[in-house]
Deep mutational scan, measured.
Amino acid sequence: CHSECLGNCSQPDDPTKCVACRNFYLDGRCVETCPPPYYHFQDWRCVNFSFCQDLHHKCKNSRRQGCHQYVIHNNKCIPECPSGYTMNSSNLLCTPCLGPCPKVCHLLEGEKTIDSVTSAQELRGCTVINGSLIINIRGGNNLAAELEANLGLIEEISGYLKIRRSYALVSLSFFRKLRLIRGETLEIGNYSFYALDNQNLRQLWDWSKHNLTITQGKLFFHYNPKLCLSEIHKMEEVSGTKGRQERNDIALKTNGDQASCENELLKFSYIRTSFDKILLRWEPYWPPDFRDLLGFMLFYKEAPYQNVTEFDGQDACGSNSWTVVDIDPPLRSNDPKSQNHPGWLMRGLKPWTQYAIFVKTLVTFSDERRTYGAKSDIIYVQTDATNPSVPLDPISVSNSSSQIILKWKPPSDPNGNITHYLVFWERQAEDSELFELDYCLKGLKLPSRTWSPPFESEDSQKHNQSEYEDSAGECCSCPKTDSQILKELEESSFRKTFEDYLHNVVFVPRKT
């Protein structure tokens, strides 16, 4: 048989008469490798580009789960590009990614509803959504962080984005990388972005840091009482949809009607710091009717980097990364020049730590249904340095008659930039024990000054392991946590139920 035959053949030295091919099969003959313009397919066939392209389009058009959109890589027609490569849609070739590779997620039936953290986790790592997304989240724990972890990498949506009755959302900033909504599939009414009845939605994105392009379709905003109209108009300008909307697409009466839409800028007039305090004062603000001013709200939190936005980490279910302080308005003076500047002394802060701070007014709604208010920009203030805590785990070892090696770990709280350490030492008198000992005694162990690591005695271990207080009263049991108490109650309830079950099964009433 021919060298490319495997198993047997019907005619000697003829690659077209093989029972099976050793390498690849091409047009009725066995070959060692697939010549151009053919590609290896499933490690035994040679196919042309049209064959591989037909497989790709067949799966793409069917949208069946589990099928493969075949691509070409290293002269092979394979189910998908290997790690580190992405497909070129024009020629199906796998090309190296520039940075992290995109991950295209194809949605069944063309859309997916995100109504819980669990459903959001199914899209973790996706960068391109081939379909439409509907966000409908009523509640949950730590929602802002969970949504950002699972949806934060999405850069492109081919269909539309719909935010509907998501009472738990305060902001859409968890879509931190969303840059493009194509609108290839539109919501009824030709809408590519749809926001309806979101009672706590206050911000779409921080438009000073976020760009969003909507290729096709219109915007729809109705019944978002805490979303200011200025935020919607800003989205029109940034996304390129200005002029597409009709009169009733953006409701003037049901958007922002319960919001404090600040239209003035508060400026800080005085800032002073110490290692654990920050004193702030800002310019006074009074609405047209000074009785509408209820006070100020001061927001602050630790910020290692200057990239904080107002609604980071917030949701309507209680999660809030900001510390909020309510401040009463100052006494009002008739003389504008003698107006008191409101302020606040922030206490209990960490030394040498940068804080993000902003302040906003708290006002009631005027009778004319106009909203007044003022808010400052987010500023960054760093507390002063102070003395560091003591170095940890000092170790001293003498390696000769004239040297001592000293080692330690950095302090747990540096409280500033540590530039150097101060080492103090003092000579001590020799131990009298060394002169009084009889060095001729056998088995004498000389006193040693070398360091030995501390260890816990058996008594201390027994005390720590004991669940009861000892007789001397030195140790006591740790208080039980809520989960331990709940577990004990469940076990007790189970024992009672099981005992009742045994009584009912074992003891049967005697027939009379």
Rank of each mutant, 00 (worst) to 15 (best):
Y300A: 05
S166G: 04
C261H: 03
L265G: 07
K242L: 13
Y191A: 11
S119A: 04
T213F: 06
L196V: 12
L204N: 07
D249G: 11
F358K: 13
Y300V: 09
Q354E: 09
W322M: 02
S166I: 07
A259S: 06
H210M: 08
P304K: 14
W344N: 14
R291F: 00
Q216V: 08
P330N: 07
E146T: 04
R247G: 15
G348P: 13
H341W: 10
S333D: 12
P388H: 02
K234L: 09
Q354S: 06
S116G: 09
Y160N: 09
L212K: 02
A195G: 14
I157W: 00
L147V: 02
W282A: 05
Y191N: 07
C261A: 13
E156F: 05
E187Q: 07
D335V: 13
P410A: 15
A385M: 08
W207I: 14
F311L: 08
E236F: 13
L169N: 02
S166K: 00
A374G: 08
S402I: 13
K350D: 09
Q216N: 07
L201P: 03
C317G: 08
I188E: 02
I134L: 09
Y160M: 14
E236M: 04
K234F: 07
K253S: 13
D315Q: 14
S319Y: 06
E302K: 12
P336K: 10
Y355E: 01
I181N: 04
R244E: 06
I137G: 02
T254L: 09
K267Y: 15
L108A: 13
H210W: 05
L151Y: 02
P342C: 05
I271M: 10
E184Q: 15
T254F: 07
K162Q: 15
F311T: 07
K409W: 09
W286H: 01
I378R: 09
S333L: 08
L178P: 02
D367P: 06
C126T: 01
V363R: 06
K301P: 02
G189A: 13
P388S: 03
G295Q: 15
Y300D: 01
L265K: 14
V325M: 15
K242G: 08
Y194M: 14
Y305G: 11
D257Q: 09
N334E: 15
Q216F: 13
S119I: 09
A168K: 00
K267A: 10
I271Q: 14
L280G: 01
V128R: 08
K162L: 13
G373S: 02
R291N: 03
T113Y: 05
I181T: 01
S398T: 15
A356T: 13
Q258G: 02
E246N: 15
K301V: 04
F299V: 06
K409T: 03
E109W: 15
W286R: 05
I357M: 02
N150M: 13
W207D: 13
A374H: 04
S239W: 13
